[in-house]
């Protein structure tokens, strides 16, 4: 059974279409990145998956309908919305006590062990912690809950690079074990490239690209073309071209590496470059149409 199975998932707010009939299958044990510009529908998709918003179309998460069976589903799903959602008045010790009290799958010792590695004091209130510490605290709670699906919506927004790096390291080393599924949305695409097993570009409520990391590395090649070979390279129909320090960097989809190696320096592009190429083209087409 797939962890998430969506067919024709649609959601409109008045005349604004946030999700335009998307299909989505996420198998167990994947780490999926949902990548898209602001207002692309990422959060709406996550809210539908979490049963926080009603939707049209078919959606099953862990075999359940998230809207009508939310109370059951929530026991197997953990969720970090963004850094601001922990109640500011609560003390760290109270937070642990409460989660232990209400969540049958919470392992308090695990959370305590994780917190021991941080500078977070038990007696502190959330409002007294820095943004980075609040995220560490939330992550400590979530990682101590034995769930099947973890949803992270911009989990590292507003954090400095050290905390962001630490966050994803902890997630991979201490949490992920191939029987869990993780969905992440973020703007900081570069930082999660090594974390993901799959990614999807979402734009204007639709998926415009859907790719596993293995396929990504096979299919997409970036070439820093030698000036003499630019015309020859362009003839191979790159999907995107940009200039860096006067040299042309061309991005190709599905062209043999050997063939390209003759034209210049070949490397695997970053997801961010592909994102700019794909979404940039989409936007240009949108404008043309």
């Amino acid at each position: 059974m797939a962890c998430i199975e969506a067919r024709g998932l649609r959601k409109a707010f008045g005349s604004t279409i946030a999700l335009d009939g998307i299909d989505l299958t996420v198998e167990e044990g994947r780490i999926l990145g949902l990548i898209g510009p602001n207002g692309a529908g990422k959060t709406t998709a996550l809210n539908a998956i979490l049963g926080l918003t009603p939707y049209e179309g078919q959606l099953r998460v862990l075999g359940r309908d998230p809207w009508s069976e939310r109370d059951l589903l929530v026991r197997d799903v953990a969720f970090i919305a963004d850094v601001a959602v922990l109640p500011r008045w609560i003390r760290v010790a109270q937070l642990l006590e409460f989660v232990e009290g209400v969540h049958p799958k919470f392992d308090r010792a695990k959370a305590e062990a994780f917190l021991a590695k941080t500078n977070i004091k038990w007696t502190s209130r959330v409002r007294e912690l820095s943004k980075g510490m609040v995220t560490q605290l939330h992550l400590a709670l979530v990682m101590a809950i034995d769930v099947k699906l973890l949803v992270l919506d911009e989990p590292t927004i507003g954090l400095d690079i050290l905390y962001r790096k630490q966050f994803y390291d902890s997630l991979l080393n201490d949490y992920f074990d191939h029987s869990r599924t993780i969905i992440i949305t973020t703007h900081q695409v570069e930082e999660i490239q090594d974390v993901l097993t799959d990614f999807k570009f979402i734009h204007r409520g639709r998926f415009v690209l859907d790719c596993s990391m293995e396929t990504f590395e096979e299919r997409y090649v970036e070439v820093m073309v030698n000036p003499d070979n630019v015309a020859a390279a362009r003839a191979l129909r790159p999907i995107y071209e940009r200039q860096v320090f006067g040299r042309s960097i061309l991005l190709f989809d599905g062209i043999e590496r050997q063939q390209l190696a003759a034209l210049g320096d070949v490397r695997t592009p970053s997801i961010a470059d592909l994102f700019v190429a794909v979404i940039g083209n989409e936007t240009a087409q949108g404008v043309a149409a």
Partner: peptide, 13 residues
């Protein structure tokens, strides 16, 4: 204060 998103992430209906 958006803490409702946290409360709703826990199994309390």
């Amino acid at each position: 204060d958006r803490s409702i998103l946290f409360w709703k992430s826990l199994p309390v209906s």
